[in-house]
Design a protein around this nucleic acid. Sequence first.
DNA 1: ATGAAAGCGCTAACAC
DNA 2: GTGTTAGCGCTTTCAT
Lengths: 334, 334
Amino acid sequence: MVKMSDVAKLANVSTATVSRVLRFPETVKEETRLKVLKAIDDLEYQPNILARQLRRNETNTILVVVPNIMNTVFLGIIEGIEAEASKNNYKVLLGNTNNEVDNEYGLIDLLKQKQTDGMILFSARMERKRLLELCENHPVVLTMDYIDGLKIPSVSIDNISSSRKAVQHLISLGHTRIAHISGPFKYASSKDRYKGYEQAMLHNDLKIDSMLVQEGLFTFESGYNKMLKLLAMEHPPTAIFAANDEMAMGVIKAAKERGLNVPNDLAVVGFDNISFSSIFDPALTTIAQPVYKMGELSMRLLLDQIRGNSQMKSQYILESDLVIRESCGGRETS
Amino acid sequence: MVKMSDVAKLANVSTATVSRVLRFPETVKEETRLKVLKAIDDLEYQPNILARQLRRNETNTILVVVPNIMNTVFLGIIEGIEAEASKNNYKVLLGNTNNEVDNEYGLIDLLKQKQTDGMILFSARMERKRLLELCENHPVVLTMDYIDGLKIPSVSIDNISSSRKAVQHLISLGHTRIAHISGPFKYASSKDRYKGYEQAMLHNDLKIDSMLVQEGLFTFESGYNKMLKLLAMEHPPTAIFAANDEMAMGVIKAAKERGLNVPNDLAVVGFDNISFSSIFDPALTTIAQPVYKMGELSMRLLLDQIRGNSQMKSQYILESDLVIRESCGGRETS
DNA sequence: ATGAAAGCGCTAACAC
DNA sequence: GTGTTAGCGCTTTCAT
């Protein structure tokens, strides 16, 4: 393997000069610089980044911790992170926790061992205390999620107002008996999506029947099962607000199986706007998170921390959009 | 930052002993070992992995190069890779080429600069010569794809026989006028999926009408558009074999819009068995690639190369399955 | 503008 | 079984 000293020898300069040509070309006389560059070229020299990293104590690598790689919701964010990272010459390591807290702890060691300069977390399950300690000592940002009452840099949408918007849409279409299939309430975002539902209902003087609120698991199957339960009621709802698109699809499947037409007999709104929402039949009306932007911003915030730039805000809230497609019907009715 | 020498000092041993406790505990007397472990614990020592890597000239990191992160087909493989990697204490770096060859070249530098120990490629677009050179000098495996005539370790299914199986299924359901919407023919897999179609047709003495073969782009939209084209024919096909599931979904959307019932008026088989295939209405009959296994195997082959184990085979072909769901109808008709 | 030289923190060959 | 020590290949301070 050709190393810097080989280049230095060939160019008749010191390794210091070669290093300077590589990192601060303007500080080297043009003549010398060209000589060195030629030597680099002739020898097809590739710097050993590991040695540089050891010396400079930085890795130019960040870690992205995902609860579940298979979940398409995260894809758009990862894409944004990756784009912003490579623009800044950073690499991204992928860590999958499979929803196991222990795996989270394992991944954190990468940070502590200086193997990555920072970390972006999708939903932190670890103890609050350890999370807080981690954030105090290392660059960390939380994305798509946030922790109540903890001052940790995070990027998300306003789940409450987004849900309110979704439910308001159903109400403005004339629905009054609206059910909500929530995500697991252990997630702050699930609670907030429920709150938005509640607010929209109360704001329109609609009573919330506790039977109409079902806690799902964010999976297609749970949407399907909870919908079956709702359909078994004496007065089933005429509209559903599902806390994510997969559950919304499960809801629609159940409804179809019972001979219901969506949107004519039942209106459904989802949440997330995953890529299949537009392909699904009927195409889902849903809340779109600006995922790519969220990824970019998360990465930028992380870089700010890594570079020691002072951080003003710690919570970044981006705008979401209600994407109206087919699953609620179009016209305002009464 | 607490380093190995601090631990050594506290435990009253040399750094060599500390290093041995960490890497080969059994070579150290129990008493000493415990002493060292206590010191490590007391100081909350975390080894600097960068220094280790520099010294040992290995990174325990591999690079996965994906043409497009957003494509769910790759997810299952990545999951398998990740699982096998972390089982072996390897980390995975994610590289997105966005289908740009230049980005591929950029990522290759990570390998050359010893920043990763090996690389798994999903479809290589770079020049054959450079790919070959790369493979000769570094651990590389190609997954889900293969390059005709190049001896590069690769993991894939037999696309020809898989497609034959899919088309044979349509034929056994009584169809004779079967169209194929292929992927871009620049991919070896697209060509092979076409070949399988051809073989099944010829084997059953069915003529291939060139109008019935349409080259798509592996996208939902292209499936939709090509289907519209097929439906405009004087004698439209009664069955479609689409080279991937997304196109199959596009096909079904177009058919539905024209008032056709799938599977009653039109049978459709897809390819890949992406996660939404079972959620789609009608649920897609499709060829399932053993993605998780492919990911695991790819990683294992890469590790073999990294560790210098001799490699017997270079092409690994795994079994695919025809998953029968709703989109072709169930019963054998004539 | 350039060079000499001291490390970054760890590992492993060699010596005892 | 443990210690000594010479690097891994680079960056950077200090001299010149």
